[in-house]
């Protein structure tokens, strides 16, 4: 096997991104869709950190990864609040059966 370089990390991130998309598209439960979104964000993060190491960008890529983690935290909090509201209204969180936000 060849020595581990930039391409290896990019391939891993591409695979994680695809898994994330698959999860977002196929899962019925809203919380599972959120997990898919987390996978996608992590795949993007791996790209940022990999280019920060192998490119000539200093630490800017790592700082961008840090900001993405912060945004993911905010996104998870808001999304779960919305999911809780959906559960209060419909008594389930199957996103294929939900067609409005209020009763």
């Amino acid at each position: 096997m060849i020595e581990v370089g930039l391409t290896h990390f990019l391939v891993i991130s591409a695979a994680l991104f695809s898994f994330g998309i698959y999860g977002v598209v196929t899962r019925k439960n809203a919380v599972m869709v959120l997990m898919g979104v987390e996978l996608i964000l992590n795949a993007a993060n791996i790209n940022f950190v990999a280019f920060a190491r192998y490119g000539n960008f200093g630490l800017n890529g790592q700082i961008m990864a840090l900001f993405i983690i912060i945004l993911a935290a905010a996104e998870a909090a808001i999304a779960l609040a919305i999911v809780l509201n959906i559960y209060k209204t419909f008594a389930h969180v199957n996103i294929d059966e939900i067609d409005n936000l209020k009763e």
Partner: peptide
């Protein structure tokens, strides 16, 4: 993924 960050030299991340 945290382990991969360590391998990429991003200890803080």
């Amino acid at each position: 993924i945290a382990g991969i960050y360590v391998l990429l030299g991003a200890d803080f991340i």
